[in-house]
């Protein structure tokens, strides 16, 4: 356990980097998903023109 703690302490900056990358990947996939859904809504609006 001690060596694990030492390892984490020495490489703290890389742990931060990995966490930031994970957060950014999460945000990116959320935005990507949102983009896809909005594209679908746009397509539906364009197709059924009686809504315009």
């Amino acid at each position: 356990m001690e060596s694990l703690y030492q390892f984490l302490q020495n490489n703290a900056i890389y742990i931060v980097m990995i966490i930031v990358l994970i957060v950014w990947t999460g945000i990116f996939f959320y935005l990507f998903n949102l983009d896809k859904r909005i594209k679908n809504v746009e397509k539906e609006f364009k197709n059924s023109k009686d809504w315009q």
């Binding site: 900056i13 890389y14 931060v16 980097m17 930031v20 990358l21 950014w24 990947t25 990116f28 990507f32 983009d35």
Partner: peptide, 19 residues
């Protein structure tokens, strides 16, 4: 361009934090 953005910001995070 979205994939490009993903890779770019990932690179910037890695470079900005770990270099």
């Amino acid at each position: 361009w979205k994939i490009f953005l993903f890779l770019l910001l990932s690179f910037v995070s890695v470079a900005g934090i770990a270099f």
